[in-house]
Design a protein around this nucleic acid. Sequence first.
DNA 1: GGTGAAACCAGCACGAT
DNA 2: ATCGTGCTGGTTTCACC
Lengths: 154, 154
Amino acid sequence: MTDLDDIDRKLVLALAADATQSAGALGRTLGLSQPATWRRIRRLYDTGIIKGRKLDLDAEKLGFGVTVFLGVKLATKGRVSLEDFERAVVAIPEVQTVEHVLGMYDYRLRVTARDISDFERVLRRRIMTLPAVGNVEANVLLSEEQRPGPLQDA
Amino acid sequence: MTDLDDIDRKLVLALAADATQSAGALGRTLGLSQPATWRRIRRLYDTGIIKGRKLDLDAEKLGFGVTVFLGVKLATKGRVSLEDFERAVVAIPEVQTVEHVLGMYDYRLRVTARDISDFERVLRRRIMTLPAVGNVEANVLLSEEQRPGPLQDA
DNA sequence: GGTGAAACCAGCACGAT
DNA sequence: ATCGTGCTGGTTTCACC
């Protein structure tokens, strides 16, 4: 962990809500000059607290109307099984996120497809044929809401 | 869905990989002038295909070392139950994502905490006391990988 | 889509507190 | 150690063709 002062925390919060804001605009709302604000942001990058900026895309408008979360339990799980599975799963373009987890499942996948029949194709031809795959459970995404996270009152 | 031409698709792909790139730099690699590139990016914003730019933060460096996915099954689920649950759950600062899903669970929550004992506090005092909450299943995040998504060959 | 230009911003000096 | 001022080159964002 790295400790941040009050201003850094406000900067991270403001940028987390909208990373488009400029250093000058942020500084104005915080009562800081533009270079001072910029230096703090750069320091947040340099220390790795901010890893980068990512686009927030509308999957539906891009033609991908179906998002499904898959919980995958491996049938066998030595070191080789995990590595084989991970290598194979990241080669599937429809897989957006691969989460290695501990609990009822071994992996959690976020899969996106054009429609339900497209998803069936991905499931049957790509997911079910993954090495060492055991039980698979699916949850179809209806709606999603992102929250600022626990930093707000930290 | 909105249809994009080849250049727009390349723009979205390039920006999805690194949203820091300038319109000028992108235009140079695509053989387009800087304002033309910028107009295309702005059109992607205006049509809502690009919803915004978000920070990619290192939760661990911010002092939140534990991330847990919770699958929540509601005990009762009329319209009121869903609304009550959603209203209560978005008020918990540790909840980063609320996903309404169809399948074995009704909701999937991404919860982040400082450590395991901090997570236990959130689970016992905030999650388990949510209105209409039934069965809860947990998966602890070990590692996570983001992929570009299926647009690459569309 | 291109060109040109204005306003703005990033990024780096230097000096002050 | 960090802020502020002043500056330069690049970027955004507007004209108009």
